[in-house]
C-alpha cells in the first residue's frame, strides 16, 4: 500500500507508521522539521518500510499540489495546541489555519484523487466534542474539523473512499513524560495501534481508547446552564 503520513513526527503518527513499516508498506512522510523527519524516516526504514520524505510546512497551501497522488491510505496527524491564554488575532488564526483550514483545503484536493478502497483518517480530538474555557480555539478548530470530515465522508463514500475521524483522549507522549499518569492516559503505542485498526475496519468516528466515547457522551449531555459553571 502507498501511505501518506502528514505530520509524521507526531508521537501518534510515529506509532502508527511503525506498524505499517513492519509490514513493509510504502510511506511518504511529511513534516516541517527536516532533522526530526530524517530521524523518523531512519527508524521506519530500519523496521522494514520503504520511506520517502518531504519537508514541508503544511500551513502553506501553495504546496498542496505536490501531495495530490493516488494513495491507498492518508493519515493526517499534524496540529497545534496553541496557547489558551493567547488573545492576539493572528495567533488564534494560526491555530485555525493549521488545525482546520489547511486540513480542509488539503483533504478536499487529495480526496478527489484517491482510488476506490482508499481511506483517509484525520486526528481530531475529544476536545472538539464540547468547547471548554481551557482550550477554546483548539476545541473550535477540532469541532470544525469534525464537521468537515463528516461532510467529506458523505461525499467520498459514493466513490468507495472511506473517511475516519480519530478522537484520542490523553496520550502519553514525550511532552507529558513528567506528568503524573492518571489511568486516563493511554500510550502513544496503543493509540497508534487503534489508528491502524480503525483504518482497516469500517469505523467512521473512533475514540481512542474506546471509553472516551462514553466520557464524551456524558459531557455532551450536560445542559449548558450547568456546563458553563464547571471549571474542568
Amino acid at each position: 500500500m502507498k501511505i501518506l503520513v502528514l505530520g509524521a513526527t507526531s508521537a501518534i503518527a510515529q506509532a502508527a507508521a511503525r506498524l505499517w513499516a513492519a509490514r513493509g508498506e510504502e510511506l511518504l512522510l511529511v513534516a516541517r522539521n527536516g532533522d526530526r523527519l530524517s530521524a523518523v524516516a531512519g527508524d521506519l526504514r530500519t523496521r522494514g518500510g520503504t520511506v520517502e520524505t518531504l519537508v514541508q510546512d503544511l500551513d502553506d497551501a501553495s504546496l498542496y499540489g505536490r501531495l495530490v497522488r493516488p494513495f491507498d491510505r492518508v493519515l493526517l496527524a499534524h496540529g497545534v495546541l496553541g496557547d489558551p491564554a493567547e488573545v492576539e488575532p493572528a495567533a488564534i488564526e494560526r491555530v485555525l489555519r493549521t488545525n482546520l483550514i489547511g486540513p480542509a483545503q488539503l483533504l478536499t484536493l487529495i480526496g478527489e484523487q484517491l482510488p476506490p478502497g482508499a481511506c483517509i483518517a484525520a486526528l481530531s480530538s475529544v476536545a472538539g466534542d464540547r468547547g471548554r474555557a481551557k482550550n477554546g480555539i483548539y476545541g473550535a478548530s477540532k469541532a470544525g474539523l469534525d464537521a468537515f470530515l463528516s461532510a467529506l465522508r458523505q461525499k467520498l463514500i459514493r466513490r468507495g473512499v472511506r473517511v475516519v475521524t480519530l478522537k484520542p483522549g490523553f496520550v502519553d507522549t514525550p511532552m507529558t513524560a513528567a506528568l503524573p499518569k492518571t489511568p486516563l492516559f493511554a500510550s502513544a503505542e496503543s493509540v497508534g495501534r487503534g489508528v491502524v485498526r480503525a483504518m482497516e475496519s469500517g469505523a467512521d468516528v473512533v475514540y481512542l481508547p474506546g471509553y472516551w466515547r462514553i466520557v464524551m457522551f456524558l459531557i455532551r449531555s450536560l445542559p449548558e446552564r450547568i456546563f458553563k459553571k464547571l471549571s474542568f
Binding site: 530521524a39 514525550p174 513524560a177
Partner: peptide, 22 residues
C-alpha cells in the same frame, strides 16, 4: 533536573547483527 529520554526511542540502523538505536 531530570532529562526524560522516553521519546528518544528510534532505531537508526541494523546491519549484520549490529543495532544502532537511540
Amino acid at each position: 533536573t531530570l532529562l526524560h529520554t522516553f521519546g528518544l526511542d528510534r532505531f537508526i540502523d541494523f546491519q549484520a547483527g549490529v543495532l544502532r538505536c537511540e
